[in-house]
Amino acid sequence: MVFGCALLVLPIWRLISELWILAFNIYERLVEIRDLMARQVQTPAVVQPALRDGD
């Protein structure tokens, strides 16, 4: 009985642990994206006007 419960509980525990790790990795990546976007806003790029065919 105990062995059967362990066979059920251990994979579920592993799944929950993996989901927590995934959630933290996603959070870290979102923080990196936020920081990169914040740097881009502070230093805007120079926009060149588009040239027409006759120019």
Score class of each variant (00 low, 15 high):
6 A>M: 13
1 M>Y: 04
48 Q>P: 12
22 L>P: 01
5 C>H: 03
9 V>W: 02
55 D>I: 04
29 R>V: 10
4 G>C: 05
13 W>E: 10
45 A>V: 15
7 L>E: 03
31 V>A: 02
21 I>S: 11
36 L>H: 05
43 T>D: 06
38 A>K: 14
40 Q>N: 12
34 R>V: 02
52 R>K: 13
31 V>H: 02
8 L>Y: 00
24 F>S: 07
5 C>G: 05
39 R>K: 15
28 E>F: 05
11 P>I: 02
37 M>T: 00
42 Q>L: 14
26 I>Y: 03
52 R>A: 15
45 A>C: 09
51 L>Q: 14
45 A>R: 15
47 V>S: 14
33 I>P: 01
3 F>Y: 05
37 M>D: 09
30 L>D: 04
38 A>Q: 04
13 W>I: 12
55 D>F: 05
7 L>M: 12
14 R>T: 09
20 W>C: 08
30 L>E: 04
11 P>E: 00
24 F>N: 02
8 L>V: 01
49 P>A: 10
41 V>P: 03
47 V>F: 10
51 L>V: 13
39 R>L: 14
11 P>S: 00
12 I>F: 03
44 P>Y: 03
34 R>N: 03
2 V>I: 14
55 D>E: 09
50 A>Y: 10
43 T>V: 15
3 F>S: 14
41 V>S: 02
52 R>W: 11
23 A>Q: 06
35 D>A: 07
35 D>I: 08
12 I>Y: 06
55 D>Q: 14
30 L>N: 06
